[in-house]
Structures are given as C-alpha cells and as structure tokens.
Design a protein around this nucleic acid. Sequence first.
RNA 1: GCCCGGAUGGCGGAAUCGGUAGACGCGUUGGUCUCAAACACCAAUGUCCGAAAGGAUGUGCCGGUUCGACCCCGGCUCCGGGUACCA
Length: 921
Amino acid sequence: MEYDFREIEKKWQAYWAANRTFRAEEDPSRPKYYVLDMFPYPSGAGLHVGHPLGYIASDIYSRYKRLCGFNVLHPMGYDAFGLPAEQYAIQTGQHPAVTTARNIARYREQLDRIGFSFDWSREIRTCDPEYYKWTQWAFLKMFGSYYDNDLQKARPIEELTAAFETRGTEGVNAACSRELPFTADRWKSMSDREKSDVLMNYRIAYQGETAVNWCPKLGTVLANDEVKDGYSVRGGYPVEQKKMTQWQLRVSAYAGRLLDDLEALDWSDSLKDMQRNWIGRSEGAEMVFRAINGDAEYDMTIFTTRADTVFGVTFMVLAPESEWVEKLTSPEQKAAVEEYLAAAKKKTERERLSETRKVTGVFSGSYAVNPLTGDRVPIWISEYVLAGYGTGAIMAVPAHDSRDYAFARRFNLPIIPLIEGCDVSEAAFDAKEGVMCNSGFLNGLTVKEAIPAAIEYVESHGIGRRKVNYRLRDAIFSRQRYWGEPFPIYFKDGIATPMPFESLPLELPEVDKYLPTESGEPPLGRAEHWDVDGWPIEKSTMPGFAGSSAYYLRYMDPHNGKALVGREANEYWRSVDLYVGGTEHATGHLIYSRFWNKFLYDLGCVCEKEPFRKLINQGMIQGRSNFVYRIVNTNTFVSAGLKADYETTEIHVDVNIVHNDRLDLEAFRNWMPEYRNAEFILENGEYVCGHAIEKMSKSMYNVVNPDKVCDTYGADTLRLYEMFLGPVEQSKPWDTKGIDGVHRFLRRVWRLFHERDVFTVSDEAPTPQELKTLHKLIFKVKTDIENFSFNTAVSAFMIAVNELYEHKCSKRAVLEPLVVLLSPFAPHIAEELWEKLGHSGSVSGAEFPEYVESYTEEDSCTYAVSFNGKTRFTVDLPKSMTREEVDSHVRGLDQTEKYVAGGKIVKVIVVPGKIVNIVVK
RNA sequence: GCCCGGAUGGCGGAAUCGGUAGACGCGUUGGUCUCAAACACCAAUGUCCGAAAGGAUGUGCCGGUUCGACCCCGGCUCCGGGUACCA
C-alpha cells in the first residue's frame, strides 16, 4: 500500500471532528495549558500559505503539551468586524454579515484541511451579538469608572462623585484630561449637564475633544497605530489632523503599569522595546513661567527633562493648537499669528511629515519670565511643539537642544552655552555630559548631578515639581462606520447616558446604505428607531481593536450568558500561556489587550494582571513574484536573459503558471484575453521569468493557496515544510524548491512500516544502535519543541529515519515511540500508523516517550587534535581516560611527531570530550 | 536622527555553553534500477592547488582578547524592522 495522504488526511480529519478529540473541559485534577493564535480577519481572498505558519507552530506545541499530560485549551475564532467587509458592502449593497459569514465558511474549510487541533466548540466571532454584548459591557464598565492615581487602579465613578460632594477636587488624585479644580459648593451648584461634563474629564471611557487622525477618504477617525507615515494602514489613504469630539479610552492612565509589568513577561526583547518606546516614559520636571501679554499675566507650566539648562532659556515655544496661543497673542501680532495658524491647519499630516525639519514659526508678542534668572524671553508659536505631549509649551534652550537650535538660527534668537568648552557655533550640544557653566548655583556640577539638583531647587522654591511624562496617548475609540459594535449610550438632554447592562446586546440596526448620511453623520444615522424613548443613540461604532481586546477571556467560557468569563473558568485557565502572532500588533492590539485586561483586573473580573505570559512572533511568509517582459508597444515577450537587448515593461505573472521560473506558454496565453496572441522570444527553447521577493498579495499574482499544496503533497507535508523552511520567528519567502525533500521524508517514514506494501513490524528487541537513534531523537525533539526550533526538529527526524531506514529497522519498540514523536508535526500519518500498530483511539492520547540518557551515552569520545589552534586530525579514545592519559597518548602518536617536526611541545590542553590543543614552539 | 535585529556554500538554513564550521534539505554532477520515463537507491559536492595522497584558504570588513572566535570586546560597511520634531 502506497502512502495515500489524500485518503489518510480525509479519514482522520473526519475522525477528529466526529470524536471531538480536541475538546477542552475544565479539569482541576490536571495542569492546564492555554495556547492561543491571534485570530484572523476573514478576508474575501481566503488563506494563503503565509497565514498558517503561526497556527502550525502553535498546533505542534499544543499537541506536544497534550502528550506531556497537560489539559490544553487551543481555540480559534474570527476577528470579524472590519473595514474590507464594509467597503465591499458599499460597492455591492450586500450586507457585511452575509459576506463575512461566507468568508468565515471558506476560512474554516481551509483551516480544516491543514489538520489543526482546535476546539471548535469554543469558536467566537466578534460580530456575533452574543459576543459583542461583552465588548459593550466592558465599555460601560469603563464609562462608569475613573482611575485613582494614588491607588493605581480603576474605581467606580460614584466614589469620585461622593468625593466631589464633600470636598470638591481637594485631595482627589485622579487621571483626567485637564486639571479643573473646584469646591464642593461649586460642584453642588452645577447643573446636570455641567456635572456630566466634569465627570467626562475623569471617566476611563470618555467623550472629549482632541486632535484626531481624520481620514476623509474613509470618512472616519483612526487611532495612532492605524496610521503610518501619514496614510491609513488599511487602504493607504491620506490622513489629516482635525479637532473633533470622540469617544476615547484613558489608556494613558495605565502607562506606568503597562511599562512596569512588561518586565516579567516572556516576550522577545525587541517586542518589549517596541512597547517601551511606544509608551515612552520620560522623567523630568514641570516648571512654572510667568507669561506676560501687555497687562495680563498668567502662570504657564512647561515640561522639561533638562531642568539643568534653565539658565540657557532664550525663548519659549507654544504648540499651534495650545490653548495658551489665544491668551498670549498680542494685538500687534494677532494678524501674523492667525495667518500662521491658518497655514498650519491647512496642512495634512502627510505634508507636516514630509516637511520635517523645515523650521516655521511666529512671534506671539508676549514674554515669559525665567523663574530662576528673572530674564524676559519672547514667546513664539511653532509646529515643532506638539499640543498632545507635556503641556504643549516648552522652554527653549538652543545651546543644548538641536530643534531649539535650528529655530534660534532661523529667527536670530540668542544662544547661551551652559557646558564648559562646548562648541555651539555649528550645532547644539545635545549630549548629557560635561560640566555646567553660566548657570548660577549649578556651576561646576556635571550634567548628571545638575539635573536632580535643579529639580530639587525648583521643587523647594515652589517653581515646579518632579514629573514623569508618557508618550502613550489615550486611544480614540469611535469610528464613523457601520460594521462595528454600536455604543450602548444615548443622549438624554444632550447628556451621555449608559443603557442598562440588562438591555445588552445593543444590536447593530439595519440601514439602507452603508454610507454616511447626506448631513455627514455616520451610517447609523440612516437607521430607523435608533433611539431610547426618543433620545438619540450614539451613531459611531467601536474600532477593530475593541472586539479583539478580551477575546482570549471569552474562549475560557464562551457560552456564559451571565458574564464575560465565569470565575471558575477564569481561575482554572487564568491567562494565555503561549500566544502566537505577528509583530504588526506590537503597538496596537497588544497594548489595548493588556490595558483592557488590567482594567478588568482592577474590577476583580479576572485573576491575572497580564493576558499573555509567553509570546512568539512568527515571521511573515513573503511571496516570490515572477515577471515577464513585454517589448514596448508589442505583444511580444522576451525571456529574462535577453531582455537587455530590448526596451521592455516588467509585468507580474501568476506564479501558478510558472515552474522553476520557466513560464508555461500555453497557460500564459489562456491566463488573460489580452495575452491570447502573445509571441515569445525564448532562450534555449524556454521562457525564463524574472523574480523578486515581495509581500504575498493578489495584485502581485504571487499568492500560493494552501489547498493546492494539500492537493499535491498533503497537509502533513505542508506542515512539515512550513516548519522546515527556517525559524518560525524569521520572515522568509515561500519557495517550493525544497518541498519534495520533505514529502520524500514522509514516504520514507511510511515505508519504514511497510515491506512490499504490506504493513510489517516485528516484536524483536531493538539493538543498542537503534535505541541510541531513538533516544537521541526523543531528546532533540523535546528540547527543540520547547525552544520553538521546529526547523531543526524536522531535520532531526530526517536524520533518525535515515539511520533506521539504513538498518531496515522495523521494530515496534522503536517505531511506536517514533509515531508519537512525529504526531505533533504530521498528525494524519501518525494517526494512521498508530491505528495500524493496533491502537484504538487517537495518538493524541498517548504519552510523550521518556528519554533514557544511558542509551545515548558514548563509551568513547572523539578528540580533535589541534596544533597551535588548527585542527589536524581526530582520535577516538575511551571515555574513561583521564586528562593525563589523553595527554600522554596524544604526545605518543605518529601523527603528532609529524606536526611537532623539530619543535618542542610546550603545552597540551585537554577539554574533556571536545578537543586536544597542542602548543608547539 | 534614535532604538532593536541580522550578515555563514549555487540556495533555505545548522552549529542551543568559546572547542572538528557548513548538520538537514534543495540544487548540481556521476552512477544503479528501467525498453524508456517516473519513483527509488548509491556516490561526490565551500573555494583554490593537486590524478591522488595531501596542502592552503574560508562565517560582511578592520583590529583585539584567547592555546583556540561564526560565537566575546573595540571600530566600520551593508541589509531588515520599529519610531520619528515626545522637549
């Protein structure tokens, strides 16, 4: 019987489904292990061979953990709300729910063919009302909470209201958008509307005006991580800055904890670094400068990390969007300032970025008083100061900050050097080193001493205070789109009012079109009866990251109608032990999810501080594109080797009609009507295509479908090959060159169990040699899986099987453990062989073979003999030999004499089991 | 600019602790089987010199530590990722 992978794979996939082999149940008698993949967005294009890479790795790990006796939770679901389905709906009028369901069915079919051990009974979809009920629930909880900076945790907003009733903002240390102190009497005199506005300043989910990334083409706002280089990540449309009122999540309140708790996580250093940079902690001081505009005077606070340079302040700068701009513009400068603001406002985010380092600015007409020197310095307005960071105003020290330096040069402002011997004639001296001068009481101190000394002075003189700032901004949480979770909020007399928990889910209403309304409202503005007792319901929907922020919790208890996750299920599964996914989520999903989890932790809803204990980032599988070269203005195509002789256009050609870079001419003519009559200029009778490594995408015609690989080679070959390609973490192009080798290996495994196509295993006792092969493999596979080094594990299988094959070993005592070892990697063939070995039930119920060290021990060991560091020959010696015995043995060898040749042995170095190094003089 | 990775044969990649560099697979070449092809199997395969034995050389570049360096240290070059007026 030949290795018929088609039959075998179909048979066992059906078996797993029918027997619910991978169903997980809470079982306190067994240790748990939770393996999670980042769930996919089901796009219309289906899966390509790059998508399953991480799923295969996590599946191998899950199956391995099962063999080790763990109760493994390994679920899968779909991140089903999102832009592409909505845009497709706009074009075709088809309801996104319909296309999404269709795409999910297709994904499921493709996933099933690869033989994953998912527990499908726990499947979730973020667009399912029974699921997004809990997304809405969490939002309402955030709406009903504030962040207490003293306790460092979220608390019910009622506690804050109670504090306001008795003492106003006195002694309240809560995260807020802006500090607006008031007394208890003032609070009591406020209208409901005013109170609502005040509370919005503190809620963890709040509505507030802020500069947002507005994408006109998509008609929606976007979060910072959804914008890259001034374009939307989805779609690639230009994005501009705009001031708008939006729902936001006070993620910034958690910045410190998000940073500190990173330490204990088993994540790669590079990913932790990305998050650290994104959170961007910087230690410094807030300092108050007296600002004077004619007769009016104000206390203006700035933030600096270089309090030591305050003696070198020669001007101040405000962000164009800063609220100080209005107060500090003098009548004489009003026209100039307004012109500058208008020009700045008109620029798109992209223009602002492309004009990086181009210095612009305008004088406000006001002055500030340096609190340490009493000097009056001018206040300017410039784009290089950001409204969203610090206080939106800075003290400028051109001698020691290159941005301030560029500005000072451009507008001829004075530059005062503060460090002995530094040269500021050409550039600023940014380094935090040297000895201070021109700095009053700081003179003579090094910079490292001066910074704390300056802060201490400032604090003790009431000029300012120590302050830690974070770069991390609050997340903009509303999108002007249809296909997302509706907000369970309505506006009663204009006051944002939560809908009761019992009314959830608030289901997405039907609309006639998926476009904004004529008056510019989001698509939900088209819904009929989108109100509560006549009060309008919020018309924005939640962003993509809402549904993916707590999905790992829902898998623990997916059918619970009373809670996101029941206490018992949560205390058993706790958190994800292993999370596998791409680095593209480093500053998005992985921040939001950690924030969301911490919030639920504060509420006592979950028992772990962090959602994902260990994280593996799988690399991307890139496409390998092929090109043909059309001679300009003809329908003639010239082979790659000859294209230099012609003027040609490079055209992507479908990689599925190219084999080993040779074009299938007939298939090409049939590919598209315009190539029907194509002519070719061949080399050696073949058309050779050009190639390049690019992102795998439909438009590059380089997409390889896993179904096709399963058809020709089988799922087990696909799984092994994707692992064999290289380290999981590494990005690599999909290149089918080596796939035959992997397939050959599986056929060889099959033949190990068969003699002339008849299943044959013997009960003979294995030889020491065979036991050694087996136990070396057990050890290697175990350590490789635990280190996520699947490529070397596959190599180890190949070596072991080659050795067994050479000795025609068909002994049960060797082959049975081999099947178990192989089962995480190639589960279908393993199940089939396991059954043939006489077992009933799945191999996943077997035990991982125990490694016996004594079988692999060598009685002799090989020494490599080197002279002056260069290895010359090797010698096998008994392991029992002592260092001295090896020494004298090697000295006495014939070969040794040859290499000593006239010289004298100075030193012999013996490293047990490794090498003998002989130094000759 | 700043932060983090990486660079090893014709190719993908091994070498997990400073100890025989190039495992394993692909490709290539030669051979066995076959009427032939496919499949399978065997052998060779870093580079240079040599018929061979053997020798020289070799992990991006320059230098250092060490008996010994792909690995550690210092200085570069190039490539990839993140981030970008964050005061």
